[in-house]
Amino acid sequence: MGENARVIRSGAVAVGMAVGVGVDAMAGDPRKGHPVAVFGSRAAALEKRVYRDSRLRGALFTGVCVGVTAGIGVLAARLGRDRPMAGAAVTAAATWAVLGGTTLAREGTHMAGALERDDITAARKRLPHLCGRDPSRLLAPELARATVESVAENTSDAVVAPLFWGAVAGVPGLVAYRAINTLDAMVGHRSPRYERFGWASARLDDIANYLPARLTALLTAALAPVVGGSPRRTIAMTARYGHRHPSPNSGRCEAAFAGALGVRLGGVNDYGGRLEHRPELGEGPGPAISDIRRSVRLARAVSWAAAGLAVLARVALTRRSAR
């Protein structure tokens, strides 16, 4: 009986992940009260209370935020341990809450539409929905590049990585990953305030994304023909340029997208007056406006493939438990 219960619970996780992916595809993120936004507000409040210019204090902050979130995930998973329907529902809710693929695609499409209408003002207003760059002086080519780079990076961060950790660890993996990634966005960037305090969040995010980023690159290569690209060229561009990016993970995703789309990414990025010179990734022209929709199409294909693999992985775990 105990063995059968484990099999049923594992199967409920697979069903829940599949349902959660479907809900995200249909509804995307809510405009108000998103669980990730609630977590961010609570983390920001805690930061104000515990902040010191110290790696140790930053590590404690990161440990508390991620630990509490993972603990909530464990408790939520236990609620459905003996009730498969409840377990599937909890997993579906967690999966929907941590995924951002549908919203990412919508934002990319909005940017493409604004630039196709030659509405630079609208595009500049929209860019902060995708990344933290200062859009005030960007023209169409820079806005197109920023969009394609953001779509590439966030395909891993918002879709592949959470699904990967959901497949590995169920609900706790889903919510813990999203906490890690959110903290990195909040305090993991380099600045006078967060150089030391955000160190632990940034390093933990690097670890959590190491395998998912490379899986994203492999899926991008496999699906490059969706946008007229070559799998062989995509793999070559990833191997040749992926390690040049300051991030050990983002560069793999961006180089893979550059190879699949046949464009060159990288350049100078302005983060509110803080300039970062990013190395060029890929070989070809800079992204054109038309490449934005191509990047969105590729991101969607990678997202669906990752979802299928995650569900299949949980099904495989179920069958293994049955033996």
Results as ranks from 00 to 15, higher is better:
Gly173Val: 06
Pro172Leu: 12
Gly282Val: 06
Ser201Tyr: 01
Glu149Ala: 09
Arg323Lys: 15
Glu283Tyr: 02
Ala217Thr: 11
Ala236Gly: 07
Arg232Val: 15
Gly71Cys: 07
Gly166Phe: 08
Pro141Tyr: 13
Phe197Trp: 07
Leu223His: 09
Gly198Cys: 06
Arg55Phe: 02
Val98Ser: 10
Gly20Asp: 10
Gly267Thr: 12
Leu79Pro: 00
Ala176Gln: 05
Thr155His: 09
Leu218Phe: 08
Val68Phe: 07
Phe164Ile: 07
Leu204Trp: 01
Thr220Gly: 07
Trp96Glu: 06
Gly108Tyr: 02
Leu115Met: 13
Leu127Trp: 12
Ala140Arg: 15
Gly286Leu: 11
Gly132Lys: 14
Ala307Cys: 06
Ala45Pro: 00
Val38Ala: 15
Gly16Trp: 10
Ala12Gly: 14
Arg83Ile: 03
Arg278His: 14
Glu149Leu: 09
Arg274Gly: 00
Ala217Leu: 10
Pro279Ser: 11
Val13Asn: 02
Ala77Val: 00
Leu312Thr: 15
Thr91Phe: 06
Cys131Lys: 04
Phe61Lys: 05
Tyr194Pro: 04
Gly40Ser: 10
Met237Ser: 15
Glu3Ser: 14
Arg293Asp: 09
Thr103Pro: 00
Leu312Arg: 11
Val7Tyr: 03
Val296Met: 10
Thr147Phe: 08
Ala146Glu: 03
Arg274Met: 06
Ile292Lys: 10
Gly267Tyr: 09
Ala213Pro: 13
Gly286Asn: 07
Arg193Ile: 07
Gly87Leu: 09
Ser41Gln: 14
Ala86Pro: 00
Gly173Trp: 11
Glu254Ala: 09
Ser136Phe: 00
Ser191Ile: 09
Ile207Ala: 10
His110Gln: 15
Ala221Cys: 03
Ala140Tyr: 00
Gly108Arg: 04
Leu218Asn: 00
Gly40His: 10
Asn4Phe: 06
Asp206Lys: 00
Arg233Val: 14
Gly228Ile: 08
Ala18Glu: 02
Val90Met: 13
Gly87Val: 04
Leu298Gly: 04
Val36Ile: 15
Gly73Ser: 08
Leu309Pro: 01
Ala76Ile: 14
Glu47Ile: 04
Gly22Leu: 15
Leu174Cys: 06
Thr95Val: 07
Ala86Asn: 00
Asp29Arg: 15
Glu153Val: 10
Val168Asn: 04
Ser54Pro: 01
Arg320Ile: 04
Asn4Tyr: 06
